[in-house]
Amino acid sequence: MKIEILGSGCAKCRTLEANVREAVKEMAIDVEIVKVDDFAEIAKRGVMVTPALVVDGKVLLNGKVPKVSKIKKLLAR
């Protein structure tokens, strides 16, 4: 599984990244986490409001920072 965190370094993006890392750690799954901060790359994924969470090329969330438990539910699907 490849997780991408899209955002240009705002406070919310950092919180999202921290929450995702925490969720992944709790779930003990093997994933690759990549930060995408290039505007063109963000736009290419169809995202206009950051931060966003992309898993295997699919946009799961944008413009919000969910709690660790919610991220675990999203990733479990």
Binding site: F39, I42, A43
Partner: peptide, 17 residues
């Protein structure tokens, strides 16, 4: 729409693109 200077550029690209 929400506005934060960190989303102006992605929105600009998203619109014009």
């Amino acid at each position: 729409t929400p506005f934060c200077s960190c989303s102006s550029v992605p929105i600009f690209i998203g619109f014009v693109g």
